[in-house]
Simulated assay, not measured.
Amino acid sequence: MQIRIQGLSKSFGQNQVIKPLDMVIESSRLTTLLGPSGCGKTTLLRMIAGLERPDQGQIFFDDVCVFSEEKGINLPPEKRGLGFVFQDFALWPHMTIFENVAFGLRATKNTTRLEERVHKALASVQLEKMADRYPHQLSGGQQQRVSFARAIVIEPACILFDEPLSALDAILREQMRVELRALIDRLQITAIFVTHDQTEAMSISDKIAVMSQGLVQQYDSPENIYQAPVNQTVANFVGTSNWIDDHHLFRPEQAQLVGQANDQHFQAKVISSEFLGQNYLVHLEYQGQEWSVYSPIRLNHDQVIDLYLAPQHITQV
């Protein structure tokens, strides 16, 4: 399902949370809304879901208009055919895993082949053998998988994820990122994922909308957002940016300690070195700016080093 947004806006009192926005979310792809708290990403997700009413604009699911202020159309959430996965797992503690997953089907009286569909959904998240257990008998990662199964059992055209991994510890969060991405690929379903975690966004997304102050600053592939940020807001929020001046930057992995012909040459002073296992992350001072680069060896505090950058590795914004 393709989601098309035209001229969408939303204010709370005098605060315009979403400024007029046009956007197309591609079918069978995972699109992430990325940005800091208060940037409008969750409000945008809630408007797509029908949980928040926009002030102006239109929302189309394929060719079907689900919201239009001008035409007086506002399809309720339960009729939009969407699956939801939230930060808190929101599982019923007194129900078995089977009944938790079946809840949406029973609530909408969509009970044809219910047992088959629930077991298929549980199998898709590798929990088919835990159908008779209760939420408190599962780990955090398993509970999150139950919420995934509950979202897909209704066979939605799109699943909305609102920071679903933020309640998990770091190791489990990384594991669940892999599983979530594999699930989306397997189902070939449209997904919209909200997060403030840039690593999370870069690792799972087909496209990312970087949001700030109610605007989409850049909407592109993870690679393009990292390698060719359109402005300072995007460059500073996604990845580590080493600023040469107000309009030129490079990324830590692009600097070399040994130069080639035509490389630009810089000298910088070492602030500190952090051992990362395979290499060191070195913090430098260059003309009042703090830079970060990688080195195969530890560099000493106050040591002055030579850095080299190929011209194609210097990004202008």
Rank of each mutant, 00 (worst) to 15 (best):
N262A: 11
F61H: 05
Q303D: 12
M23H: 02
A228W: 00
N231K: 05
I48C: 00
Q142D: 09
G277E: 06
A268S: 05
L172P: 14
R145Y: 01
T43R: 05
I192D: 06
M211T: 10
Q278Y: 13
E253H: 14
D62Y: 02
R145A: 03
A268Y: 08
I25A: 07
S27Y: 00
H196I: 15
R150E: 03
S205N: 09
E52W: 00
I225H: 10
E174A: 13
A151W: 07
L187S: 07
F98A: 06
A201S: 09
A121R: 09
K41E: 03
A255W: 06
E179V: 06
L45D: 00
S203H: 06
L172C: 07
Y134Q: 09
I5L: 08
H136G: 10
D185T: 09
S166M: 08
N100L: 05
L21N: 01
K19N: 07
M202L: 15
W243C: 00
V230K: 05
H283F: 14
Q260W: 14
V178D: 14
E200V: 03
G141M: 05
P252A: 13
N279A: 14
Q87C: 01
L307I: 03
A151M: 13
D206T: 04
F193E: 04
F60N: 02
R173D: 13
S9Q: 08
Q188Y: 10
N236S: 12
A121K: 04
S11E: 03
E285K: 11
A228L: 07
Q254S: 11
Q137M: 15
S68V: 11
P36G: 00
L307K: 02
A182K: 15
F266A: 05
S37P: 11
S221N: 04
Q198V: 03
Y134K: 13
C158K: 07
T315C: 09
L307E: 07
L180T: 14
A167I: 01
H136C: 14
Q14L: 10
E69F: 00
A131G: 10
D169A: 05
T199K: 12
D169W: 13
G57P: 01
E290T: 10
P20F: 04
E223C: 01
T240A: 14
A49K: 01
Q289Y: 15
G288T: 02
P296S: 07
H283E: 14
E128Y: 10
L44M: 08
D62G: 12
V125G: 02
L138P: 04
E70H: 09
Q137S: 11
N262Q: 13
A182C: 10
K129D: 15
D302W: 09
E78A: 03
H247C: 02
Q143W: 13
Q312M: 03
L82H: 01
V238W: 05
V282K: 04
M95Q: 05
A255T: 08
C65P: 05
P296H: 12
L299F: 02
Q267E: 15
L160F: 02
G13K: 12
Y308R: 01
S28M: 14
V146G: 04
M1N: 02
P311F: 03
I171P: 15
G57M: 01
I244W: 14
H119I: 14
Q2W: 00
L91T: 03
L75D: 04
K269Y: 13
E115W: 07
D185Y: 12
G141P: 14
K109A: 10
D220E: 15
I5R: 08
Q267N: 11
L44A: 00
A191H: 06
D88F: 00
